[in-house]
Design a protein around this nucleic acid. Structure first.
Lengths: 134, 134
DNA sequence: CTATTAACTTGCAAAATGCAAGGTATAATC
DNA sequence: GATTATACCTTGCATTTTGCAAGTTAATAG
């Protein structure tokens, strides 16, 4: 697991952000919660990118340590846990949004999803408010 | 070097972005060019985070392959090369900006730089325009 | 022509990642 | 109440990436 001793002490806000979520998986977990309403380990595991179990649990623990997600028992199902975004996690919405816009402009593969982009172009503030609300 | 076969084919714009710059170093190189006016290998190497030589060259090649930076001979010094942002690279400005804002709000270490934040708060559009201009 | 600078390259140990299989606790089914 | 299934992990191991140190090459300065 990426431990805290790896955090860079440059004081640079970009380095701080990268130390917190700068890897191939962390923001995809945030995406699952923020854009897709997924919230359990099994739901994250089923995401089409195919994260492996050890990496998933590592990242969930890391995001929890960083105060971006919190983990609680599902009140309706005692063998399930639900992960939700904290305020700090919801505040990632503008970053997620800008990444979507950037990729929308520069990913020219035919497979690139364009429906979300249309939505954002039509009503950016509404979309962002929706992200933050969960 | 992170090769293209590692690019995920989910079509998700967030995954696309992460495949392009989702690691601990790529956006720090972009920062060097965008915020600090640095543009050579040696200048990037001197950044306070201490990137190692093999990782630096690997990321520079990757960013060049991805069309985010371009490499040209320095017209004034034939043993030096200058890296500059392409349009695609300059378009990362809003992402960089949002990461700075997020870290500004959530990095509570005393070392965290606050001067840039003030600047952004006072004139966000001006700051972003400055980023894009280089 | 010697020293220095800029941009790499190489070798190797340590850490992170990815894949498959195993384990435990809760819940549903027979 | 025994069996099966589900949800959430844990472990082992091979592969890949990273980080550190040292070496190389080419251009320029003295």
């Amino acid at each position: 697991m990426r431990n805290e001793s790896k955090r860079r002490q440059s004081g640079c806000p970009i380095a701080f952000g990268l130390d917190t979520f700068g890897d191939r998986w962390s923001l995809l977990i945030v995406r699952e919660i923020m854009l897709r309403g997924n919230k359990t380990y099994s739901e994250f595991l089923a995401a089409e990118e195919g994260i492996s179990t050890n990496i998933l649990i590592d990242r969930l623990k890391h995001l929890e340590t960083e105060g971006i997600v919190e983990k609680n028992r599902d009140p309706d199902n005692r063998r399930s846990f639900v992960y939700s975004l904290t305020q700090k996690g919801r505040d990632l919405a503008p970053i997620i949004l800008e990444i979507i816009l950037w990729s929308g402009a520069h990913d020219h593969r035919p497979s690139a999803l364009r429906d979300v982009l249309k939505k954002i172009e039509n009503d950016r503030e509404g979309f962002e408010a929706g992200l933050r609300a969960g």
